[in-house]
Design a protein around this nucleic acid. Structure first.
Lengths: 253, 253
DNA sequence: CATTTGATGTCGGAT
DNA sequence: ATCCGACGTCAAATG
């Protein structure tokens, strides 16, 4: 695949280029000084400045500045991008339905326009998510507690959207809330809600609620204590990149 | 400002270009087939495919595919980008401290490299945030209820991080949770937490908790009812873009 | 610095 | 379609 590009095009040349490439499902990048106007869930106005604008064929729009990971303005996939030249100025309007949102970009200069069709079939393989943690615990429930037995993943309906539902050694119902990392009051609050709903739905007052996470903030700890919820620390599986050099012993084997 | 660009450069040429431009605090874009390896809070691997890579001078890294608003891989501001040529292949390594995170990119082809220094002094002006809603209510407390009087706008120490704290016509304490849009159980749960903490800290059992939002989901409504919390619908101020064409009357002036 | 919460959050899965 | 919760969430304000 190649990348086609125009340097310092006239607005008309840029428009012709963009229209042709959009019709061919290309991704477009535009570098230039622009004004960005957004109306939708909120409204925003971005005065003139130089930015990198990306138009994706799936309807995504990105306006990036020199700083930050988050674009200063954007439009999610599914939008319609409409480029035009109005009064000799290149504009792009991106519209969305439900919610109704519009981003208007007006270019005062166009330094570069590029178009590319990127061949990219493979998917991202992400490891270490909360779901992975869940599988790890289902495979070895003693990570939660000796005698803990998760119930069939299917009849988890009983515990609503709880991450894991099971019984302890004494047969008491247990609702587990999983988090990969240090958690605050919100996660504890969430578990509290599931526990309350379980009691309400089943009448079982003796249910236990357990947060399994890397750690708890102080406020979260206090809240858990107040609400009678438990916490079990669980470090990530030891493969982490935490950079400590291997001990000599490990080479001694 | 200009945009410098190389088409189909050799890895060595690309490296030289990138190093020079990074030294000059430029933002770099690289289009090419690449493999992306991430290790950090989780781990991920992205097999070979063509992508658009952006290196910002503030240490941000973006890897974008043809779809989605969210980059498939990234690094937040503050990271160190290290380009190199290894075994005749262009690579970029972006590292971060605390948490320790590394993104490794290996380019199998480089279709285009560009560099730009974008002049962009102005800030985004965003209107319609929750803070704006808060100001709207402080300016006109009857939006919540007749007789509602917000207390010390300053440090709401009394009511924790509640959005608004005040008293109703009868002098009962009121904690208000604001949301701009339709809210689910999480927001109700949050308000419940603030109310509980207020009761615990002050002993005032007669506190009211009110959700002020566009609307509530059914579950959120049920939860609010169970917990004795109130809901007050509040539409955005009427300026919305809701797209209805202007009536002829408006042109009649 | 850690904590907490909002966000034009985005995104995917389940109902 | 809506609802719901995770996210490598990000980013800002506060203590």
């Amino acid at each position: 695949m190649t990348v086609a590009s125009l340097e310092d095009p006239t607005p008309e040349a840029a428009l012709e280029f963009i229209e042709a490439e959009m019709a061919a499902d290309a991704m477009i990048t535009i570098v230039g000084e622009c004004i960005v106007d957004y109306t939708g869930r909120t409204d925003s106005f971005l005065p003139a400045g130089e930015r990198l604008v990306v138009l994706k064929p799936d309807g995504t729009l990105l306006v990036h500045r020199m700083e930050k990971r988050t674009p200063v303005n954007w439009q999610p996939p599914g939008c319609i991008h409409q480029p035009a030249v109005e009064d000799g100025v290149l504009t792009v309007q991106s519209t969305r339905r439900d919610p109704e949102e519009v981003v208007d970009i007006e270019f005062r200069t166009v330094l570069q326009v590029s178009a590319m069709r990127l061949a990219d079939g493979r998917e991202l393989d992400l490891v270490g998510t909360e779901e992975d943690l869940r599988q790890r615990i289902l495979a070895d429930p003693t990570l939660v507690e000796d005698g803990f037995t998760p119930q069939d993943t299917e009849r988890w309906n009983v515990a609503g959207p709880a991450d894991i539902y099971g019984e302890d050694a004494a047969g008491r119902p247990v609702i587990v809330e999983l988090k990969r990392r240090r958690v605050g009051p919100d996660a504890v609050s969430q578990l509290k809600r599931y526990v309350d709903e379980f009691v309400r739905d089943t009448g079982h007052e003796d249910v236990r609620g357990i947060v399994v996470a890397e750690s708890l903030t102080e406020n979260a700890k206090a809240l858990a204590d107040r609400e009678g919820l438990e916490f079990i620390p669980l470090a990530p599986p030891e493969d982490s990149v935490t950079g400590t050099t291997a001990t000599l012993d490990e080479f001694g084997d």
